[in-house]
Design a protein around this nucleic acid. Sequence first.
DNA 1: TAAATTTCCGAAAACGTTTTTGGAATCTGT
DNA 2: ACAGATTCCAAAAACGTTTTCGGAAATTTA
Lengths: 340, 340
Amino acid sequence: MTSIKDIAKRAGVSVSTVSRALNNYQDVNPQTREKIIQLARELNYFANAAAKSLVQKRSYTIGVFFGDQMNSGFDHPFFLEVISAVREVAGNAGYDLLIFTNSNKNRATYTTLCRERGVDGVFLILTGEGKKKNEQLVELQESGIPCVAIDLPLEGERCSYVESNNYLGAKKAVNYLLGLGHKKIAFIGGDEIGKLSFDRLYGYKAGLSEGGIEIDSDLVNLGYFSEEKTKEATKTVLNKHKDITAFFVASDSMALVVIETLIENGYRVPEDISVIGFDDIKEASQHKPALTTVRQSKYVMGSEAIHLLMKIIDEATYRPYPVVVPCELIIRETTAPCKK
Amino acid sequence: MTSIKDIAKRAGVSVSTVSRALNNYQDVNPQTREKIIQLARELNYFANAAAKSLVQKRSYTIGVFFGDQMNSGFDHPFFLEVISAVREVAGNAGYDLLIFTNSNKNRATYTTLCRERGVDGVFLILTGEGKKKNEQLVELQESGIPCVAIDLPLEGERCSYVESNNYLGAKKAVNYLLGLGHKKIAFIGGDEIGKLSFDRLYGYKAGLSEGGIEIDSDLVNLGYFSEEKTKEATKTVLNKHKDITAFFVASDSMALVVIETLIENGYRVPEDISVIGFDDIKEASQHKPALTTVRQSKYVMGSEAIHLLMKIIDEATYRPYPVVVPCELIIRETTAPCKK
DNA sequence: TAAATTTCCGAAAACGTTTTTGGAATCTGT
DNA sequence: ACAGATTCCAAAAACGTTTTCGGAAATTTA
């Protein structure tokens, strides 16, 4: 490994001059600089990031936590697309991404892990269980480490989050169903702990209310983003309400299960019952019939999140606020006018 | 940030003693050690990774390159599952993952990027264009940096790769088709540059030969893993050979396109024509009808790859060899006995 | 031409660790 | 009680940078 010393020796100057030359300081003779740059190229020199970060206290690295604390894997519903955006824009700004593996050997917290690695900021994209606000999250929030989360209401001096407009998205779905003439609309929600689940439920209720429909709490059931629970919830609704004509489901993956269950029970989609999902995952458009759904702009979310994070990193005085990304209703084949 | 110095001061010992105490050296008095550990806990101390890696020349970080050089994104067909395995086993061994963003600002190569960040090893999972062996790959291969790739035949002192047994997998598919009585079996391949594509083609040919069927090069077409090209290739076959009864396709995503095209042209799957894919991506099982395919064990591939990499890192004398993971034929609904 | 200014560069400290070396203190055996 | 062995620890160098400070040389100004 060729170091700054090697260059200094060859160029006949001091290491400090080499450093200044390579970092575009102004107080260095153009010819000297040229010689040094030339030498650096020849010797295939690249600065040692560890040494740099040691003195600068800047690593040009963004830490990423995802999945839950149990290290269960890359199972966020749209982890891929979000992280892809993050990677792209962070990359253009000169950052690399450090994926924490949560090695369970040492029981370090988010905060200590970040400090240990010296990341400039941290990006959180957690699933289910991770979303319970726990001490670790609070610690991180108060640590002063710049941090941005997806779908997880973090707020602090240097903390913020990005989410979809789940409330309005849900309302759009319900409005559309109402416009098709549906009156008995069941809701299969997520869980009781996530803000996201709450907002979608709230949007559902608001949509119905504004449409002049009374809310029947029997029509609201939770699927917990799990296949079995969703199936169960669907059956519960079906048994109690033979006259149901539409389902609004809080995630596409659950919506697909709902459709499956419906078909197993002899219903046709959308002829007998309409179904709307949420997320617009890949499978939604590939499914037969293609799923009508509320699309989350995953790329936009990722991009907004990382821009936000970089702003927090760069501007010491910036006081961040949450970013709410609009949703779009994507009409496909699982919705039809109500016949009853 | 509390450093080793703070602890030393408080404990009334030297920094070297603190370091030795914390790193389980034997020549330190049990009581001293206890006091130091206690203090470290109280002060919430964690070692600065940069400083550590500077002196140790070990970062406990594994670099990850994925996508092509154009920074096109996380588009490897099963990036997620492989990287999930990598993360899990690397995490248990104490490594974090550094995702290189290929910031195109500086035109650094794989090798310099790795040296700069001081990663202990590097993991490559590239798509299409990245697979052309280029100078960067050669440089990396010869750099002495431990490195393991997926589906990319890297070989060197400290380099290796993991792949599926594409040859045998393809043969299994053809054998199965032959067993169902099919004699006219078309092949939609990938491209001309990947070893993977070559092996699958070779397996197809071997399968036919062993079954006593003459190979008709008209039946072999490439889809280049693209929707349009695949559609085109399918139509070409269909036009020339009205009597075709089965397609073996080199990837699931292409197989799905083939099926779509078949249906558009009035064929039924599997009643008129059987189709077998390759990969077993998520959509394969969810498709109606569910796709018969050759499954690649993605988790196993990732796990084997990272184990291999860690072995190369740890054992200076270890001369690595490629790991070939078996494929499994998953019989679903797109294959049926030949009626002709 | 002397003084003032500017241009350019080197020395050295600092970042937070690990690791080598040597030595003081204690312990062991005789 | 003395030599030798053992136990424990401190000092210091090293890793590869950046950055501050000051100063010599060159240039400008008066």
